[in-house]
């Protein structure tokens, strides 16, 4: 009854679909991380206006469904700006912006757990603030926030399957396509599920490796 050989002609397509999933996760994590760090610094700054705006941003992106944000960016960008945004761009952008909101919360905690004394020490040596933030705060904040950061990128990897809705040829879309062509749902979707599971396990391994690496200063 089960016949995985129906998938054979589609395997090259699967490779490119998985690659899209990986690329997608990588770029949205990257945007999420950079944006999250900047947001975290802003919420911790003493500038009331910027801090309020950053908090509002975080509140909105955490308070609305990711799929809605994706649709909004994909379908409303051409309408508002005239720029035809590709499905992949829209996906990376909305996922990056969304995860920035979550990552900023994790990093904020990580930054707050670096004691103020190190800040004073760096000031008293004449170290410029931006160097101190990059060289002292950031490594310690990442270390403190690493478990939540790994978690967040796993969420992003799994949620990346949402972009199949707007037509990105990712892993889930691949399975959907095969189902449509061969009428074999189980084989296609179980392979897609397995692919996601393997990728998540790989991310877990990477996380454990990084964790060991940053623990050297303990």
């Amino acid at each position: 009854m089960l016949d995985f050989s129906v998938l054979d002609p589609y395997l090259p397509l699967l490779a490119s679909a998985v690659w899209i999933t990986i690329k997608f996760t990588f770029f949205s994590t990257l945007i999420g991380f950079l944006g999250g760090f900047i947001l975290a610094l802003i919420t911790l700054s003493h500038n009331r206006l910027f801090s309020f705006l950053a908090k509002a941003y975080i509140s909105v992106f955490r308070g609305t469904p990711l799929l809605v944000q994706l649709m909004l960016i994909y379908f409303a960008t051409p309408q508002l700006t005239g720029y035809t945004i590709s499905a992949l761009e829209a996906g990376v952008l909305s996922f990056g912006l969304n995860s920035a909101a979550y990552i900023s919360e994790a990093l904020r905690g990580g930054i707050l757990s670096v004691d103020r004394g190190q800040w004073e020490a760096s000031m008293s040596l004449g170290v410029p603030t931006h160097r101190f933030i990059l060289d002292v705060i950031l490594p310690q904040a990442i270390k403190n926030a690493l478990p939540s950061l790994v978690n967040e990128s796993i969420m992003l990897l799994k949620d990346s399957s949402l972009v199949s809705v707007i037509g990105v040829a990712d892993t889930l879309r691949w399975a959907d396509l095969i189902q449509a062509k061969t009428f074999r749902a189980f084989e296609a979707f179980i392979v897609a599920a397995a692919v996601y599971y393997v990728l998540v396990m790989l991310l877990n391994l990477l996380g454990a490796y990084l964790e060991r690496k940053v623990r050297v200063s303990d």
Binding site: D115, G117, Q118, E120, S122, V136, Q140, K143, S217
Partner: peptide, 8 residues
Amino acid sequence: HFNLFANM
């Protein structure tokens, strides 16, 4: 309290 940089 020394205030050494903990990551160095």
